[in-house]
Design a protein around this nucleic acid. Structure first.
Length: 887
RNA sequence: GGGCGCAUAGCUCAGCGGUAGAGCGCUGCUCUUACAAAGCAGAUGUCACAGGUUCAAAUCCUGUUGUGCCCACCA
């Protein structure tokens, strides 16, 4: 769809034909540019470099499928940060890689198998794992393809996978060290069991939601010795081994120590006194099922109660009798029915809304279950992880998130790390024939001989990703890369994995790297949502494949839209219309650069001396330097939305709109003035493109290389304040007077345009006009203003029918009787009313003693100025109204 | 049950003590020689509600209502 290259019709002295088409076609440039960047090694990181390092790791995407908009968002932010640092001269490493995502990936592959009517057991462990590797190959390829499309500047040669050889070594090493330090142990506890995934999961992998259940109150015991307990999981009563009451509870004191009959069984169970029981809640008596409830388990420990498991791993009743073989839900209603038949149900509450745990992977209701598992003793590790933030060595951004972090690390239970899965790092522990337990580190031979077997479980996937900031650099080997790039500089990730991943990296990093935290800043971003702020999900039908929008609008457009919505720590809505708007912005940059090139914009040679610059030139250079400073400040504070917005408005409104329009007459006039402006425009574009590059890398690369003739903006210097020869500034050119002057020009132009529009004049219609600019600084801008306002020189027969005094200047127009007097009268009346209101307000304020006494001078001055402006406006408008011919 | 956050233009959000802002959308008029993926002009807000502090409150405090998120072993 490329159009014939256009040539500037007004071919001035500097105009050259340009090869750029009139519309930016991202698809034509993005792919080749990315491949060129990679080939030239711009993204590689050299551990031998003497530059200061800047390191950031990718939050490794799961190899479960393809990237979604959330990844596109995260990658945009990380890429922007690292591209800027690279331009600033740091030895920059963006470490790429992927996560094997144990349970998630195993589930995906099992679903694939299910389509073929097979289960993983049909294949057997080895063949199944082989199959998952195959899946990883495909999915991983897809993911890296998407990252290339996005423009991610990662060091591909360093790509790692949490299950590759080196990282497996790291996993075994740290496991062994923690084991030897007694920070990893094996114990039988109540765990969160997923009867669908058939594995234990950790506490944070359980999602609680309010479910409707039924609370039944059951009478236990016989005759005088009865009490009532309540439960939502009636089936667990088969495993009850006690009833607990509060030690001080008078109602039950006589029963403590007695045995009472457990209904539906031939067992009797003791009544125990335990302070855990809240006498205020329910009946004050609690059934105790140590094998199926974490609290009950602890009560059981205190009172030496037996643990009776009543369900197998599929949550099917195993207790011999009428309920054996029934699923837990089936058994629940059957047992309630049986109890009712015995007259033991004394109350029912249905529905009873209560919080129920679900497997975060498959949503199946968790079944607490007694099980032998491996654990990390987190207390000492979590203490260190909390302290590193508390003492300021690690900053969390935005700071409000610190509270969440502390709440978690300060109240952490031990971490169950073993999983009854096949996909993952196998636990490096061997069991001997006589119950010996041997933990083996990397490069150690496992015990051989009769009866020795390796633990069949694998590790929680977050165990290996917790090592990511240093395992990717070669740890446990003391590599050059590790020395150079650890600790990481900043971690950019979503607040949703603050506990899963960030806290674990903190714990492991501090532990393995002798107390050096893995990064000094944690920048947390929000979740991508749809244009109405709704969560994106496949089932809701509002999920978007980032590739679709990149195909349609270009990667830059997607990236810019995402960056522009990125307020720290809060969710980011995105809609297709907005991406389209960003595409328009990219096109605008493209065309503005075309215009500049057609007019000879250049970066060759030094900037002209300050004495040669027009006020327009000085204004835009001054503004440019403010924006450079502003953008830097926003980057340091991870304010991506603000920096993107600042650049958007500076580029579009100030450079591409006002500067270009105000300079057109200069360019057309040719001569030295045009040369000067061409050099200034070249400079402004050069800097603006470099400022924009981290967020919109492709279009800026295409244009910057064309503009400057240099190799690549990827390796260009990050902008600093521009200096103008001959100007009395050392820290960057600024010119307040020029800024004021152009502001006035803008006011005049806007005011006259408003008048023209109100009068129904066609935008292109030329009107004879006389401009009285005496006593103002605007004389130099007359040609530009006439051009912008379509004003012709006043001829012999000029008759002013409208006269607009604005900002000290007067613009008289000859509308040759075409003026709509009523419209003008209305407009002026409206303006007059506004000015009078303003006058009244400011007068009142200035008459207020208290205000004058307490308000800062700056504010008082401002109010005075407002009053003066209002008074001047009133005079002006009144004069205009009087001058209006009678209708 | 605890903790945190949010309520500002039709939508999504900035602003966080001194004249209400942006993007998108909407209404007019224009192919004005970089760009119609554009230009110009315009409309639209008791800044959730009620109190309080202050010369001054969208902005600070208290309460109310609505809403979202995180955490939690009350059967």
């Amino acid at each position: 769809m490329t159009e014939t290259p256009q040539q500037s019709p007004t071919a001035g002295p500097n105009s050259t034909p340009t090869e750029l088409p009139t519309q930016y076609a991202p698809a034509d440039v993005e792919g080749p540019l990315y491949e060129r960047w990679v080939e030239r090694g711009y993204f590689d990181a050299d551990a031998k470099s003497d530059k200061d390092p800047f390191t950031v790791v990718i939050p490794p995407p799961n190899v479960t499928g393809s990237l979604h908009l959330g990844h596109a968002f995260e990658h945009t932010l990380i890429d922007a940060v690292t591209r800027r640092k690279r331009m600033q001269g740091f030895e920059t490493l963006w470490q790429p890689g992927m996560d094997h995502a144990g349970i998630a990936t195993q589930n995906v592959v099992e679903r694939e198998l299910a389509k073929e009517g097979k289960s993983r057991h049909d294949l057997g462990r080895e063949a199944f794992v082989e199959r998952v590797w195959q899946w990883k190959g495909e999915s991983g390829g897809q993911i890296s393809g998407q990252m290339r499309r996005l423009g991610d500047g990662v060091a591909w040669s360093r790509e790692r996978f949490t299950m590759d050889e080196g990282l497996s070594q790291a996993v075994q090493t740290i496991f062994k060290r923690l084991y030897d330090d007694e920070l990893i142990y094996r114990a039988e506890r109540i765990i969160n069991w997923c009867p669908r995934c058939l594995t234990a999961i950790s506490d944070i992998e359980v999602e609680y939601q309010d479910d409707d259940g039924e609370l039944v109150s059951i009478r236990y015991g016989e005759g005088e010795e009865t009490l009532v307990v309540a439960t939502t999981r009636a089936e667990t009563m088969l495993g009850d081994t006690a009833v607990a009451v509060h030690p001080e509870d008078e109602r039950y004191k006589h029963l403590v120590g007695k045995q009472i009959k457990l209904p539906l069984t031939d067992r009797t169970i003791p009544v125990v006194a335990d302070a855990h029981v809240d006498p205020e809640f329910g009946t004050g008596a609690v059934k105790v099922t140590p094998a199926h409830d974490p609290n009950d388990f602890e009560i059981g420990q205190r009172h030496d109660l037996p643990n009776i498991a009543v369900m197998d791993e599929h949550a099917v009743i195993t207790v011999p009798g009428p309920f054996q073989g029934q699923d837990r839900l089936e058994a629940r209603s059957a047992i309630v029915a049986a109890l009712r038949a015995e007259g033991r149900i004394v109350a029912e509450k249905r529905p009873y809304t209560h919080s129920v745990g679900h497997c975060s992977r498959c949503k199946t209701t968790i079944e607490p279950r007694l099980s032998m598992q491996w654990w990390v003793k987190v207390a000492p590790l979590a203490k260190a992880a909390g302290d590193a933030v508390r003492d300021g060595r690690v900053k969390i951004h935005p700071q409000e998130m610190e509270k969440r972090y502390f709440d978690w690390v300060d109240n952490l239970h031990d971490w169950c790390i073993s999983r009854q899965l096949w996909w993952g790092h196998r636990i490096p522990v061997w069991y001997g024939p006589n119950g010996e337990v041997v933990c083996v580190g990397p490069d150690e031979e496992p015990p051989t001989g009769e009866g020795w077997t390796q633990d069949t479980d694998v590790l929680d996937t977050w165990f290996s990703s917790g090592l990511w900031p240093f395992s990717t650099l070669g740890w446990p080997e003391q590599t050059e890369s590790l020395a150079k790039f650890y600790p990481n500089s900043v971690l950019v990730t979503g607040y949703d994995i603050l506990f899963f991943w960030v806290a674990r990296m903190m714990m492991f990093g501090l532990y393995a790297m002798d107390g050096t935290p893995p990064f000094h800043t944690i920048a947390l971003h929000g979740m991508v949502r749809d244009q109405f702020g709704k969560k994106m999900s496949k089932s809701f039908g509002n999920a978007v494949n980032p590739l679709d929008w990149m195909d349609k609008y270009g990667s830059d457009a997607l990236r810019f839209t995402l960056a522009r919505g990125a307020n720290p720590g809060v969710d980011v809505p995105i809609g297709e219309d907005w991406v389209q708007g960003s595409r328009n912005f990219a096109n605008k940059i493209w065309n503005a650069t075309r215009f500049a090139l057609m007019n000879g914009a250049t970066v060759e040679g030094p900037l002209p001396d300050a004495s040669e610059l027009s006020a327009t030139d000085r204004w835009i250079l001054s503004r440019l330097n403010s924006v450079v400073a502003e953008v830097d400040a926003y980057y340091e504070d991870y304010q991506f939305a603000k920096l993107s917005d600042a650049l958007f408005h500076f580029a579009w409104d100030e450079v591409f709109d006002w500067y270009v329009e105000l300079s057109k007459t200069t360019f057309m006039g040719g001569g030295r003035a045009a040369e000067v402006s061409a050099r200034v425009l070249g400079e402004v574009l050069d800097v603006t493109l470099r400022l924009l590059h981290p967020v919109v890398p492709f279009v800026t690369e295409a244009l910057w290389t064309t503009l400057t003739g240099k190799e690549s903006v990827v390796i260009a210097d990050w902008p600093t304040a521009v200096l103008v020869p001959g100007a009395d500034t050392t820290d960057g050119f600024r010119d307040q007077d020029a800024e004021k002057e152009i502001e006035t020009v803008q006011q005049v132009v806007t005011e006259v345009r408003r008048f023209r529009s109100d009068q129904g004049l066609q935008p292109g219609q030329r009107v004879p006009a006389r401009l009285d600019l005496t006593g103002t600084a605007l004389a130099a801008h007359e040609a530009a203003m006439r051009s912008l306002l379509r004003l012709q020189p006043a001829g012999e027969d000029f008759a002013a029918t409208a006269s607009l005094p604005v900002a000290g200047a007067t613009v008289a127009l000859d509308l040759s009787g075409a003026i709509d007097i009523e419209a003008e009268r209305k407009r002026l009346a409206k303006d007059l009313a506004a000015a009078e209101k303003e006058k009244a307000q400011t007068t009142a304020k200035l008459g207020n003693e208290a205000f004058l006494a307490k308000a800062p001078d700056k504010v008082v001055d401002k109010i005075r100025t407002r009053l003066e402006t209002a008074e001047a406006d009133i005079v002006r408008i009144t004069a205009q109204l009087e001058r209006l011919p009678k209708a």
